[in-house]
């Protein structure tokens, strides 16, 4: 491995970590993960990570802040949380890429809190991607739920949601965008 490659790997992991948070449900049964979606305080995670109207988010900088549920789609296993950007300190929104442009064999990275280990990184290859799932050969553990799956440039392509027969299943970034659009439309209507 060239030094260059190792450096690139650690830099991308660092970038990705900066936009990854730990999400503690109100019951605090253990942490899931989340992705800072915009710098004003929207965090995306899995619906199964947050059961109640509130949660606690721990930022990459180590601050614990209260988060309010702004939307949930159990069917797509997505939830949006809002945290107060002033309480949270510096929030770095994750870069995004449309998962529909992924091809099999591309390198992807997952960051999260598997087994409560903060910021752990795993890497593997994309198997396939459709409107429902990005499927990848990446090692995940329960605490990865809600965390980012990103490409080799650190651009988020999905939200890690489940493990099926050892394979990682992530909700594609396009579905997250659609979820947020629907949420905004609802808010306006209300």
């Amino acid at each position: 491995m060239t030094t260059d490659l190792g450096v690139a790997f650690s830099e991308i992991a660092r970038t990705l970590r900066a936009s990854t948070v730990a999400v503690h449900d109100a019951g605090d049964r253990g942490a899931g993960s989340g992705v800072v979606w915009d710098a004003r305080g929207i965090v995306i995670t899995n619906a199964h990570v947050v059961r109640g109207a509130y949660a606690t988010v721990e930022t990459a900088g180590g601050r614990r802040v209260r988060a309010t549920l702004v939307g949930r789609d159990a069917e797509r296993d997505l939830a949006a949380l809002r945290i107060d950007a002033r309480d949270a300190g510096v929030l770095v929104a994750a870069g995004r890429r449309d998962a529909a442009t992924l091809v099999p064999g591309e390198l992807v990275l997952a960051v999260g809190n598997p087994h409560g280990i903060p910021g752990a990184v795993s890497a593997g290859l994309v198997h396939r991607c459709n409107a429902r799932w990005v499927v990848a050969d990446v090692r995940l553990a329960p605490g990865n739920s809600g965390g980012p799956l990103a490409d080799a440039n650190g651009q988020v392509v999905g939200i890690n949601s489940m493990i099926v027969r050892g394979l990682a299943f992530a909700v594609p970034s396009g579905a997250v965008a659609a979820f947020l659009r629907a949420l905004r439309a609802d808010t306006r209507a209300a």
Binding site: D4, L5, F9, P104, G105, L107, D151, A152, N153
Partner: peptide, 21 residues
């Protein structure tokens, strides 16, 4: 796939995807 890999990891990713193709 990114047309212009911006780092060596992205270049590796492109190589792996090319090997699969």
């Amino acid at each position: 796939m990114n047309a212009s890999p911006s780092n060596s990891l992205a270049a590796l990713s492109a190589d792996l995807a090319r090997a699969v193709a």
